[in-house]
């Protein structure tokens, strides 16, 4: 098991600077190992594998950050030289000479809109499917799954025509709606699983005390489902934030570009200026990373709490 990390080439350069930390074994009298504790060799091996894996996970991102500090466009070919002339010039250039703040604004509007609407709708759907055995609920779940399978290519042209008929092209709300169709099915699945773990007695108690079905949902279940909601929000946020294909087709004016599209257009304009590209990429990653650290606490409990129930 401990060797199951795929040996990617990235591990080659990093593993050199990866001495396995050997904690000094205390000279204690022999003690009985309790259950769940691993021996010294086992825990060293675990630490070793996890450290290598962490380095592989971190390295491409750190490398991007590092390259973004080099002032010259060919610096990525001579990374050693960057260390001596590190500068934030790329960042100031990007912030001053692009519509970065416009793009950030549209990204945040679209992303937060998708997150809010998506989580709310997915929560009502997930709750209905989790609690009420209405006819066709199982088919409905399968329909949701099938919508995950639609490739972008089929939907793009027809969606464009519908949106332009509804006058929603180049409009934040139109993009939010489109993103909702891609994020809601999985979020609803996820939340259904989470709601399944909340005891049904709570609903009954609420109903006995005279709450309507909607009241039970909003006042009892939603507050209890916070970890699940956080994960759904995380998923919605990231999906909407990093989507490129729809955004580049549906947003036409360049002050309404999302960050992803803005970066694309910036890349095609300044093709050779990789230092600027790197800086833009880092700037874009920041909001997503910030959001991630807001919700990460709930990630593990929220993601599969319900997945273990049949």
């Amino acid at each position: 098991m401990s060797t199951s990390t795929a040996p990617t080439p990235a591990s080659a350069p990093v593993s050199k600077e990866n001495p396995v930390k050997a904690p000094k074994a205390p000279k204690a009298p022999r003690r009985v190992r309790r259950r769940g504790e691993t021996g010294l060799a086992g825990s060293l091996a675990s630490h070793g594998v996890l450290t290598v894996a962490s380095l592989i996970a971190l390295f491409p991102i750190l490398w991007l950050v590092y390259l973004s500090l080099g002032p010259d466009k060919d610096d990525y070919l001579h990374p050693g030289g960057i260390w001596d002339k590190m500068t934030f010039a790329n960042y100031t250039f990007v912030l001053e000479h692009t519509k970065f703040f416009d793009w950030l604004k549209s990204s945040l509007i679209v992303t937060l809109g998708t997150t809010a609407i998506g989580v709310l709708i997915a929560a009502t759907t997930g709750y209905a499917v989790s609690r009420m055995r209405f006819p066709g609920y199982k088919k409905f779940m399968w329909v949701l799954l099938v919508t995950q399978m639609f490739p972008v290519a089929v939907l793009m042209v027809p969606m464009y025509q519908i949106l332009s008929d509804l006058k929603l092209i180049d409009n934040y709300f139109g993009l939010v709606l489109v993103y909702c169709t891609t994020v809601i099915p999985y979020s609803a699945w996820l939340l259904k699983g989470y709601f399944d773990t909340i005891p049904f007695e709570i609903d009954e108690a609420g109903r006995v005390d005279g709450l309507t079905p909607f009241g039970t949902f909003f006042r009892l279940i939603l507050p209890l489902a916070k970890p699940g909601l956080a994960v759904a929000a995380f998923y919605n946020f990231l999906t909407a934030f990093s989507e490129v294909a729809f955004a580049s087709t549906f947003m036409l004016s360049d002050d309404k570009y999302t960050l992803a599209v803005g970066l694309q257009s910036f890349v095609s304009e300044h093709d050779a200026q990789r230092n600027l590209m790197a800086a833009t990429a880092v700037l874009i990653a920041l909001p997503a990373a910030a959001f991630f650290y807001l919700v990460q606490k709930n990630l593990v409990t929220g993601l599969t709490a319900g997945g273990t129930k049949g």
Partner: peptide
């Protein structure tokens, strides 16, 4: 800490990390 770091590739938008990989 390990968990936080290991989830990072998911937390950073794909197009950003793909740029990083293109550099590498």
């Amino acid at each position: 800490l390990y968990r936080l770091i290991l989830v990072l590739p998911w937390a950073v938008p794909t197009f950003v990390t793909v740029f990083g990989w293109r550099f590498m």
